[in-house]
Each structure stands twice: as structure tokens, then as C-alpha cells.
Design a protein around this nucleic acid. Structure first.
Lengths: 167, 167
DNA sequence: CGCTTAACATTGAGCGTTCAACTAAGCGGG
DNA sequence: CCCGCTTAGTTGAACGCTCAATGTTAAGCG
């Protein structure tokens, strides 16, 4: 193990700006959703993904992958959403281990009610502050990072993410 | 209230890429720190800011602002860090309401032990995947967003962040 | 000076997430 | 067929964060 490669001045500025922006932004979005629609952002995402899926339903694992959530987190979240009547769990016909989450009409209505305020907040705090070029840059940066983190070598290391071999 | 301005296709892609990247990245960084150094990222940030401050100490409110944290969150966090012996709270001489958090030697050592692994993870998952231009772009995007969220009109709205007046 | 209002910080309850342990069911080779 | 391994999903405890309420001190102002 070599010496630590610390961040350069510009790298440090970039990392901190990104970190602070994201902290502030996510906090603001969470508060807006919680206050206006009584749901955390994670629940909103679950509803969105289900609403876009065929039959407004998905296997639990698919849903977990789509929302970048752990299985456990999704289980807890879906349990609470089911209590609210926003979705239902049904058994999977082809795999008796499987469960399928199905969005209910009430759940869809909750999403429809929440969406305008949430989108407005995303625009106001992020999108509308950026130039079109910056929107594109953000997409590219995000894609690169996602690709890295979901690559095979990274998924494997998820549970043992130490000072890893530089591939 | 007018109709909702939904996100365009490219805006949607950018927002989702950023959201997914950040979710994955923050989860990865949190896990790394938790596993290797037994602290959440929020605690790491507190230690960093204190270590950089004069006398390795700061007023609670300063520290809350620096870490983009709520007062309450910081209070809870500092209480726990104090239990571990990583910092201490002393009364402020000039303002009897105030408290000053002081990093201890043990706390500094914990930070020194945690830093290399954390920086390596930030590099591996983010910085080293970007071109120098992208690092610059990320800094600029982050700065714009931070500026917007800490502007007076936004700080005021923090507690009532509805579909706000467009200034 | 005395009163009201604002700022500093903490507290406890409620909620969501994590981690590890666990059940149940599919899968593959002898 | 059955044994071991993997995958799907759930569960409970521990922990951190949020929100609202509280105590305390400083500031503003007539």
C-alpha cells in the first residue's frame, strides 16, 4: 500500500462543492416532499418506478435495483407503503420465493398529487440554475460514476470496499 | 398556479443520472467509512472541519453551517462523539448561550486513521473517473447550486419550501 | 430599565436505514 | 432423490436524522 494520494486543490474544491450542493439539495427536496406530500424521497422514487412499469408492478428485486436501494430498505419501505394502501404485495406465480409490488389507485393518486411540487423544486434548486451545457455535463458525469459503481468489480466489492486493487 | 413544467428528456436523464450516481456513491462512501473506521460520513465531516479550524475548535453554529447540518443533528452527533472521547464541549466565554466543540487528540487520531481510506474511495469512485474538465464542471455546477440554496430567499423558505415565487 | 423578540443549543419521540440473522424456495451434481 | 449452495425476501435491534418543544441568554427598543 503506497502513500495516500490526497486530493489536489481543484479536486478538493470540486468534491466539496458537489458534496455541499448535494447535501443541501437532497435535504431541501426531502423536506418539500415530506411537508407537502407526507413522504420521504425514497418512497416517491418507489412510486415513480412502479407507475412507469408494465401493470404498475415489479418484482421486489427489480424495484430494489431500479431505485438503487438495498433489499432490506425496500422491504421496510414497501411494508409501510402497503399499510398506507398505496401498494400491495402479491406472490409471484413463477417463483414462489418472489413477491410482486403493485401500485394501487390510491398510490397512483398520491404520486400524481406529489409530482408537481417535487418537479418544481428540482427545477428551482437544480435544473433551472444550470445552463443547457451544464445539464449535459451533469448527465455525463453522473453516468460515468454510475457505470463505475455498478461495474462487476465494484458490485463484488460492495461488502468489502477497502483500499481496493486498482483493477 | 400554472401548469407543471415537467422535465425535458435531457433534463430527466441528467437528473436521474445525478440522483443515481449520488445515491450509489454516498452509500458506498458511508459503508466504507462505517466498516473501516466505525463512523458515518457526517461524523467524518465534523472531525474534518474541527481539525482545520483554529485551535481545532468551533462554535456549534459555525460547525453546523460548515457541515451543512441542522442544529439538532449536530447536537446529537456531537453528543455521541463526546461519548467516544473524540471531542469535548466547553462553554463559550463571550456568549453564555454558546458552546464550543474542541477536537481531542484521540479524535484527531481517529480522523488521521480514517482519512486515507476515505480519500481513496472518493478518488476511486468519483475523481479518478472524471476528466480534469469534468472535475472543473462539477465544481461549477456544485457552486451554482450551493449559491442558490444558501441565498437569502431560499434560507427564508427553508421551512416553507412550497412552489415559491420566482423571485 | 423592563419587556418582548430573536438566537443558541439541547432534548425526546417518531421514523427510516443499516446490518446481520433468518426462512423459504430454486438449482445442480452425485 | 437428496444434499449443499445460491437467491428472494423479511425481520428486529441499533443507530442517526427530523421535527417540534424547551430552557436559556442576548439584543432591540420604548
Amino acid at each position: 500500500m503506497g502513500k495516500t494520494r490526497w486530493l489536489s486543490a481543484s479536486e478538493q474544491r470540486a468534491w466539496r462543492a458537489y458534496l455541499e450542493a448535494t447535501t443541501l439539495l437532497f435535504d431541501a427536496l426531502d423536506r418539500q416532499l415530506q411537508r407537502d406530500s407526507a413522504m420521504p424521497h425514497a418512497y416517491y422514487e418507489i412510486l415513480v418506478r412502479l407507475s412507469e412499469a408494465d401493470g404498475r408492478s415489479m418484482r421486489m428485486s427489480e424495484l430494489a435495483d431500479a431505485t438503487r436501494s438495498s433489499r432490506s430498505r425496500l422491504s421496510h419501505a414497501v411494508a409501510r407503503l402497503e399499510e398506507r394502501g398505496w401498494l400491495e404485495r402479491v406472490e409471484c406465480p413463477t417463483d414462489k420465493r418472489g413477491q410482486i409490488a403493485v401500485l394501487t389507485g390510491v398510490g397512483f393518486a398520491a404520486l400524481e398529487a406529489a409530482a408537481p411540487g417535487h418537479v418544481a423544486a428540482v427545477r428551482r434548486h437544480l435544473i433551472d440554475r444550470l445552463t443547457p451545457e451544464q445539464v449535459t455535463q451533469l448527465e455525463q458525469i453522473g453516468s460515468v460514476v454510475v457505470a463505475g459503481l455498478e461495474s462487476p468489480e465494484c458490485r463484488a466489492v460492495r461488502a468489502a470496499d477497502t483500499v481496493a486493487p486498482v483493477a
